[in-house]
């Protein structure tokens, strides 16, 4: 799993690329938290999931963990472009109630 960041008009975009499972979540977590600390002045963060080719419940833990991290910094989180299979998991686990889909 690779993580790409871009920043425009005080919005931080974090794009996840590849497969998100228990084995590769730790590195993604570290990367994303580094970004959170570096961009704590953002008005919001948007997680772009269009290139996530696989996600299991690890992804739920990952996203909620990042939501909490950014919330502590005063930055609200959003999700965009989930694939149908990712969308299914995020819907059933209620992640969108914390991180709305935009």
């Amino acid at each position: 799993m690779k993580i790409y960041a871009s920043y425009a008009d005080s919005v931080l975009y974090i794009r996840l690329d590849g497969e998100m499972d228990e084995h590769n979540a730790a590195a993604a977590r570290r990367e994303a938290d580094k970004l959170a600390d570096g961009y704590a002045h953002s008005s919001r963060v948007i997680f772009d999931l269009k290139n996530v080719t696989f996600m299991d419940s690890t992804g739920i833990g990952f996203l909620i963990g990042r939501y909490k991290k950014f919330l502590r910094l005063g930055v609200p989180s959003y999700i965009t472009n989930p694939t149908p299979s990712t969308d299914k998991i995020l819907l059933m686990s209620g992640v969108y109630t914390l991180m709305p889909k935009v």
Binding site: A25, R29, D56, S57, T58, I60, G61, F62, I64, G65, I89, M92, S93
Partner: peptide, 14 residues
């Protein structure tokens, strides 16, 4: 404390 969602069995069931 490890950011586990606790949804594994629920996902298998669903």
């Amino acid at each position: 404390d490890e950011e586990r969602s606790g949804m594994g069995f629920t996902i298998m069931q669903t």
